[in-house]
């Protein structure tokens, strides 16, 4: 079990995370927050790249920074910015990382072949990576994270740069890989984790806002999400009164999905909230800023 206890992190005077408490047991965790909310900072602490200013991170009761090699030996990590040597083939690069991960040479050879097969790169394994597409490179990234058969797999924005088809492929791959592991998947793309995460962690205002199952988190908006059709002319006025979650054109009308604490009109249809609704509502200030 991986436990984050009362962890705070700041860069100089800029506080990024405050008093974070999270427990991870086997399963897939979706770390969901807009860019800049502190996801990568948390992940970098979980991967020993950053040191917390306060608090500690324990794996099976031992501080991960004291465990050193022992902790990193059970860790697989795909950083948000996955670096690689352009002139290396996938096989060469995985061989290099296998050496860094302390895998015995023969074992590494077998494992690399298995993983290249798994991520669908076996037929291009000896081609230089500079010839790979973004999706192929990302698959090498996933393979390297899996090299040491980690007990903790941390993936930071793993679907960045992937096309929709590759995203689906990645989700399926992850579902397959995630048995008997702690998988922490950081993203700001809701659909990436909607179908595979056992629990979602949302960070807001430097703190953990939610750490719960998707259903439980969605229940926080139960009875508040509606859909209705309105004239385009009314759209602006409507948006001023209610928080719009999504809008689409339907004939000469606009179908709008929105938040309201009460049902004020019979034409409004109450719908089940999904995690994207919660995300948009929770981070509405950030969404507006980003928009």
């Amino acid at each position: 079990m991986l436990i984050v206890t009362n962890v705070s992190k700041s860069y100089g005077k800029l506080s990024v995370l405050e008093n974070i408490d999270i427990e991870f047991s086997n399963g897939v965790y979706g770390l969901l927050a807009p860019n800049g909310a502190g996801k990568t900072t948390l992940i970098k602490m979980l991967t020993t790249l950053l040191f917390p200013n306060e608090g500690e991170i324990l794996y099976n009761g031992t501080n991960i920074f004291h465990m050193g090699d022992g902790y990193r030996d059970i860790l697989g990590y795909l950083p948000q910015e996955f670096g690689y040597y352009k002139n290396y083939s996938a096989r060469q690069f995985l061989n290099y990382l296998a050496a860094l991960k302390g895998l015995e040479r023969n074992l590494a050879k077998v494992r690399i072949n298995e993983l290249l097969e798994l991520v669908g790169l076996a037929n291009v394994a000896d081609k230089k990576m500079k010839k790979y597409s973004g999706g192929m490179v990302q698959r090498v990234g996933i393979a390297q994270a899996m090299l040491n058969d980690p007990k903790i797999l941390i993936l930071d924005e793993p679907t960045a740069g992937l096309d929709p088809k590759e995203r689906v492929r990645f989700r399926n791959l992850l579902a397959e890989l995630s048995r008997d592991k702690i998988v922490i998947l950081s993203t700001h793309i809701v659909s990436d984790i909607e179908s595979i995460a056992n629990e979602i962690i949302m960070i807001k205002d430097k703190k953990v806002l939610y750490k719960d199952s998707i259903n439980s988190i969605c229940k926080t908006l139960e009875g508040m999400v509606y859909e209705t059709s309105i004239d385009y002319a009314q759209a602006n006025r409507f948006r001023n009164h209610y928080f719009s979650l999504s809008e689409k054109q339907e004939g000469d009308k606009m179908k709008i999905r929105f938040i309201s604490e009460n049902k004020l009109d019979d034409s409004w249809e109450s719908v089940s909230p999904n995690i994207e609704d919660v995300f948009l509502y929770v981070y509405k200030d950030e969404v507006i800023k980003e928009g």
């Binding site: 991967t47 020993t48 790249l49 050193g68 090699d69 990193r72 030996d73 860790l75 990590y77 950083p79 910015e81 996955f82 670096g83 690689y84 040597y85 990382l97 860094l100 991960k101 302390g102 390297q144 040491n148």
Partner: peptide
């Protein structure tokens, strides 16, 4: 080269650290 290309992330989080 490794710092600029972010390969240090992979190196520092692998067993050798």
């Amino acid at each position: 080269r490794d710092n600029k290309d972010k390969i240090n992330y992979l190196q520092y989080t692998s067993k050798i650290g």
